[in-house]
């Protein structure tokens, strides 16, 4: 009994309160597209294994958009983008109350 109490005292609280610290720097999280850099070669759409990338007409302009619901965070698109228009970030808190937000970038 004494041993257990001593242990509890020594270990302290293991669970952590939100907001939690950001994920590790290498973490493959949310994909961000820079529409300024994208040259529209659309190679990434062919590479994406889960079909998360597509083009959409935004304000009269064809733009690359990503569905965060479909994305599997493999980072193939970012690896293969010649213009470095697609970047992986370490954002891991992607839960949303609105499905539409997850659909488009």
């Amino acid at each position: 009994m004494f041993e257990i109490l001593r242990k509890i005292w020594r270990t302290g609280t293991v669970t952590r309160r939100q907001p939690l610290p950001p994920a590790a720097a290498k973490y493959r999280g949310k994909i961000v597209i820079d529409p300024e850099r994208c040259n529209g070669c659309l190679e990434c759409i062919g590479i994406c294994p889960s079909g998360a990338l597509r083009t959409n007409c935004i304000q009269g302009k064809e733009q690359l958009v990503i569905s965060h619901e479909k994305c599997i965070f493999c980072g193939s698109c970012a690896d293969n983008c010649a213009e470095q228009a697609i970047k992986l970030t370490n954002q891991c808190y992607l839960a949303t109350r609105n499905k539409q937000e997850a659909q488009e970038r």
């Binding site: 290498k26 973490y27 493959r28 965070f73 980072g75």
Partner: peptide, 11 residues
């Protein structure tokens, strides 16, 4: 996650 970027070592 720190080493490979994924908790279950995918990718």
């Amino acid at each position: 996650e720190e080493l490979a970027g994924h908790r279950y070592l995918r990718g």
